[in-house]
């Protein structure tokens, strides 16, 4: 049982995701990885479906983990985790090992969770394996040079959704709501939460709650990407905060059938304050920004936060 971390000062000093990798300056996914590993501790096996957190971390055949790590295809993080869990159950029961049952954590990107990895993810949760599946959302296929994924917001520029005279807004589709998909329809689900690297204490405690749950737990972590979103590398934390404060991302958890908002901004800021700092939205016209405001308002309403910025 992992205990609640009462304050940032009381967080463990030990690091299990250590320096020595090649992620970009200000990389959101790397920052959240460090927090996850710290919260999970030494009895942990990480799985890395193909994505930034595989490629940038393991270049040259080495990696920054002080715990075991295994690569999976971008398609199959959930299935490989199921196999590790089933193996440990069997070999512990059959006394073929004297190891303790480990924390099994999949660290998948938004593509490896909401898109090509969705089938394996859903199957693992349906079967009820005791794993923690983390989707770190940097809102694009970033490792391949920024292509749109199902969680790329409406209006964002990517190399597959460039803005042009015919398609002025770039990305035309609204993003897939993966936590909602996971929350409903997986009867074995034991814990689900969203988190942001800009709220580190909340993030670490959600990791621990997920690991303490006896069964599948899902954590969806918002992880801004300076390169993909085109903002300065020292603004990652600010960007994560602004996403929550403008209603573009909400922090909540689902435990024992009950939803709970885990952070409620005092005042909701207009979406424009968030997107004006990001080059990927620089082409948007007022009507496109209004659509994003409508999107944020809709999501806020869904989780029960009062909408205070009108959208036309």
């Amino acid at each position: 049982m992992l205990e609640e971390i009462k304050s940032l000062r009381k967080a463990p000093e030990e690091e299990y995701y250590v320096p020595g990798h090649r992620t970009c300056a200000g990389c959101g996914p790397a920052l959240q990885y460090r927090l996850v590993a710290k919260a999970a501790g030494p009895n942990t096996i990480f799985l890395g479906p193909t994505g930034c957190m595989y490629v940038a971390n393991t270049s040259y055949g080495c990696g920054p983990w002080a715990v075991p790590w295994i690569h999976t295809q971008i398609t199959n993080g959930g299935a490989v985790a199921s196999g590790i869990e089933a193996a440990y159950k069997a070999i512990i029961r059959k006394k073929k090992t004297d190891a303790e049952f480990p924390n099994i954590i999949v660290m998948a990107g938004d593509g490896g969770s909401s898109d090509i990895g969705l089938q394996a993810l859903s199957a693992a949760f349906y079967r009820g394996h005791n794993i923690l599946f983390i989707a770190y959302d940097n809102e694009s296929y970033a490792n391949t040079g920024i292509q749109t994924s199902p969680t790329t917001p409406y209006g964002a520029w990517t190399t597959f959704s460039p803005a042009g005279p015919v398609i002025p807004e770039g990305k035309k589709l609204m993003p897939k709501d993966l936590p909602k998909m996971m929350a409903h329809g997986h009867p074995e689900l034991k814990y689900l939460a969203t988190a942001s690297l800009s709220y580190p204490l909340d993030l670490m405690n959600k990791v621990r709650k997920g690991l303490n749950a006896e069964g599948p737990a899902f954590l969806y972590i918002h992880a801004p990407c300076p390169k993909g979103w085109s903002f300065p590398a020292d603004k990652t934390i600010e960007m994560g905060k602004l996403a929550v404060e403008t209603g573009m991302f909400q922090l909540y958890e689902l435990h024992e059938g009950q939803y709970k908002l885990t952070y409620q901004p005092k005042e909701i800021k207009p979406v424009e304050e968030y997107i004006k700092l990001q080059g990927r939205f620089s082409h948007l016209q007022p009507e496109h920004i209004q659509k994003l405001q409508q999107f944020a308002n809709g999501r806020l309403k869904e989780v029960g936060i009062e909408v205070s910025v009108p959208a036309q």
Binding site: I70, T72, V80, G83, A90, A123
Partner: peptide, 25 residues
């Protein structure tokens, strides 16, 4: 005495045994 895992497809089947074998099963 074995864990009998319902794969979600053949890709999933091979992925499950990949993880299980890597864990010593």
């Amino acid at each position: 005495d074995a864990e009998f895992v319902y794969g979600e497809g053949e890709h999933g089947q091979l992925s499950v045994v990949y993880g299980a074998s890597a864990s010593g099963a």
